[in-house]
Amino acid sequence: MRHFVYGAAVVLGLAMPAMAEYPERDIQGIIQWGAGGSTDTVSRSVTPHAEAVLGAKVILQNVTGGVGAIGLNQADRADADGYTLLFGAENPLLYKVMGLGEKDYADFVPINVIARGIPILVAQPDAPFDTFPEMIAYINENPGEVRFGSTGPGGLPSVVTAMINDKTPIDVTAVPYDGDGPALTALQGGAIDVMPAVLGAALEPVRAGNLKAIAIFDSEGVEQLPDVPAITDTNPEFADLLPWGPFFGIFAKAGTPDDVVAKLTDAYGQATQNADFLSMMEGRGFRMLSLTGAEAQEFLDGWQSQTAWILYDAEIAKNSPEDFGISRP
């Protein structure tokens, strides 16, 4: 009944100053990437658990475009009151060096850095090489012949290719796709030969034998594909660059009151521990992080400095990380 009276009062336009505790209305969640993508799936499957803790609805909507910058800017324009959340991936940390925008996660507070993807190198099943050293040897014998899938500068394939180039320069043809889904489709159709992808997207075709896994691009192997070696097993020189991977996180605008951030952090912290969610994340080949507070910030800073410098050294980045106070790792 009390609710009803309050509701009636509001309907009559007698809205009082906010007295109720946060959250007293629906929260808006902006997903940086399109419906059906990894960021979208992860955001939509963790949120119902957090809603249960918060006791409010989080209305998710996809605001896409500009490698996620359109969504980030929209979240940045909203008030710092915790009623607008950003569900994003790693890309904003590269906006400054790639010349894509002035804003990045420095303008936000991390609520939860949920999980990290593991890069994997996959090839066509009939590719004339099975291991990473064999692949490098083949590429060197046939310069420019091998077609690598890519998802545009700054995407996972470009970073992984830059890392490979950093250790052993290779001459390949990069064919751009708009996302790793279409690129993996093209790989299975024979339009490209090799693709650095995220494990989750490549897992099923690899298990079915439609794709051949060359190496897990990480410092250790994964249990989903026990037979595939980690790159550091064959080429230990990569150890100083790894582990590296794209990640997903939830962010609120900087300046959001501490108690609101604490409440959101608690809700999403609990949500990411949910058993159903964990098993889905494992099935999709993600490594759970669930980092919050200072830990999350440290992770973001480290990731940014490492990746920005790799891209700058590979001459993919337009601007020097130094210009933005990003120090060399």
């Binding site: 609710h3 309050y6 509701g7 309907v11 809205a15 007293e24 629906d26 409010a56 609805k57 009623y83």
Partner: peptide, 12 residues
Amino acid sequence: PEGRIVSAITSL
């Protein structure tokens, strides 16, 4: 204040 109206309605 639409948001509050909606939560008031749903909380009923």
